[in-house]
Each structure stands twice: as structure tokens, then as C-alpha cells.
């Protein structure tokens, strides 16, 4: 095409054609270099998107587990629900295994932003379950210990060949753990209010004590932690206040009001409290 143009007006068009050729010349070193960059960037972005997708799945499933766990207070045998939650969390762990798979050989912090939300939600769910079972705080080691995966090789024989290389771990970072625990306090507050609604008198006191411990822990960390922590500290204070108010009300009025009427007292409370509570 350039040649034909060139015939009409030889000098000028030939020059123009040359310029255009130079700018789109596939063999030029600059273009060749940028082709490599294109591939490199695309690979990175694709991986990032895949991680975001897995992270969203982790978030959704963890949230559902938390909703499931909130039913514990209203059913007679909690054990069934806890087992169901275990099954759900196992599925979540499989997803985290996929994250670990994607991150193999990568710098975990390069893609951290892609999956941090999901991991925090998982920490929240798993620590909530742990609290309901054992009435104490799950440690970071315990969480990390459950995130060890055996790689599923398409061929069974390969697994036998290199037993060491098949183990894949995922490490939750301390700040993700911290943020997850901060979210947990919101769930505990909800659990406290609903257990009062069900006429459970002991749980609120246990919860308020536990929340106070966590609150003290966060105050101890103060602003040395990441920026988000100080933001969550405010919400944590609010949750603690609500739980302490509930305990106060129980102590003061518990002796006066017949137990079967307590539910009415607190159901009016919860409607007051609910709108304030942010999306957890």
C-alpha cells in the first residue's frame, strides 16, 4: 500500500511511509521488548484476577458459615450446626488451597491485596466457630496449622515420588489475623444480644468478659498496627459498649423481671441497636 502511494508523489509519501513503518515495525527492538512486557503484565493481571475471584468465593462461603453459626443460640442441639459449619469451612479451606497453589513460587505480598478480604473473613468465621466450641481465642498458629494442603497431582504416582514437594502451606499474616479478630467482635456482640433474646443468662457475661480481653489486647497494640486496625478499634468499642449495656441490664433487672419476659425487654433493645451496626 505504501508503495502505491509513493508512486503518486514520490518524495513526500515515501518519507511518510517510512515514518509509519518505523513506528509499527514488528522487528524493531523497542516493539519486541514491549511484546515481552505485554506478556509479562497480562500474566500478572490474569493471576491477580483469578485470586480476586477465589477470594470472593472465600468471603461468601465464610459469611454463610457465620450466619449458620448464629443459629446455634436458637436450636437445642448445637453440635449438628457446628459439624455443618466444619464441613463448610473445609470447603473454604479447599479454596484457600487454590490460592496457595496460585501463589506457589510467587511473592505472597505482591498479590496480597487480591485476597486479603477473603482471608480476613475466613479468620472471622474460623475464630467464631472456635469460640463457640472452646470459649477462647484461636491462635494464629492454629489457623495456619489447618492451612496445610497436600497437592493433588493428576497422577498418583508422582505423589509417591516426591513426598516433600507436595505439601503446600498458606500463612495468614498477623495483620490479616488481627483484622479478622476485630471483625469477630461484631459477631460476638450479635451473638450476645440474640442469646439474651433467647433467655440465655450466662452467655452474655462470658461474652462480655471475652470481648473485654480482646479490647484490652487491641488497646495494647494501639497504633503500631496497620492503619485499618485503628479504624476497627472504634467499632470494637461500640460493640463492647453494647454488650456491657446488655449485661448491666441483665444484672439490674434480672432479679425483677420473670425470666420468660426477658425476651421482650431485649427484643425492643435489639431493634434499637441493629441499624447502628455496620455491615459485618
Amino acid at each position: 500500500m505504501n508503495r502505491r502511494e509513493g508512486e503518486g508523489c514520490p518524495r513526500r509519501n515515501a518519507d511518510a511511509g517510512q515514518d509509519r513503518d518505523a513506528s509499527a515495525d514488528p522487528s524493531s527492538p523497542v516493539i519486541a521488548a514491549f511484546k515481552v512486557f505485554q506478556q509479562e503484565l497480562d500474566t500478572k493481571h490474569d493471576k491477580y484476577e483469578r485470586l480476586v475471584k477465589i477470594s470472593r468465593d472465600v468471603t461468601i462461603e465464610s459469611k454463610r458459615t457465620i450466619f449458620l453459626l448464629h443459629r446455634v443460640t436458637s436450636v437445642p442441639n448445637a453440635e449438628d450446626i457446628l459439624n455443618e459449619a466444619d464441613v463448610k469451612l473445609d470447603a473454604v479451606r479447599q479454596k484457600i488451597g487454590q490460592i496457595a497453589e496460585e501463589l506457589r513460587g510467587e511473592d505472597i505480598f505482591q498479590f496480597h491485596r487480591a485476597f486479603t478480604a477473603g482471608i480476613q473473613e475466613y479468620v472471622e468465621a474460623v475464630s467464631f466457630l472456635h469460640y463457640i466450641r472452646h470459649r477462647n481465642l484461636i491462635s494464629l498458629e492454629e489457623i495456619n496449622a489447618s492451612l496445610v494442603f497436600m497437592r493433588t497431582e493428576p497422577k498418583g504416582s508422582a505423589e509417591a515420588l516426591q513426598p516433600g514437594g507436595q505439601v503446600l502451606t498458606f500463612q495468614v499474616t498477623p495483620s490479616d489475623y488481627l483484622l479478622g479478630v476485630a471483625d469477630l467482635t461484631g459477631e460476638l456482640m450479635r451473638m450476645c444480644i440474640s442469646s439474651v433474646g433467647n433467655g440465655d443468662i450466662d452467655t452474655p457475661f462470658q461474652l462480655s468478659q471475652f470481648l473485654r480481653q480482646i479490647h484490652d489486647g487491641f488497646s495494647y497494640i494501639g497504633n503500631t498496627g496497620p492503619y485499618e486496625v485503628s479504624k476497627k478499634l472504634h467499632t470494637l468499642r461500640q460493640s463492647l459498649g453494647k454488650v456491657e449495656d446488655a449485661c448491666y441490664a441483665l444484672r439490674v433487672r434480672g432479679s425483677e423481671i420473670p425470666k420468660h419476659m426477658l425476651a421482650d425487654v431485649f427484643s425492643s433493645r435489639t431493634t434499637l441497636l441493629d441499624p447502628e451496626e455496620g455491615v459485618v
Binding site: L140, D216, Y220, T224
Partner: peptide, 19 residues
């Protein structure tokens, strides 16, 4: 591990990070 111990551990990690 108690709550306080856990937060101590995390705090140690965070201040090392800050350094």
C-alpha cells in the same frame, strides 16, 4: 494460648515490622 499472650505475640511482630 490466652488472649493476652496472643496479642503480645502479635504486638512483637508488629513492632519488629515497624523497625
Amino acid at each position: 494460648m490466652s488472649v493476652t499472650e496472643m496479642f503480645n505475640y502479635i504486638q512483637g511482630f508488629l513492632s519488629a515490622d515497624q523497625d
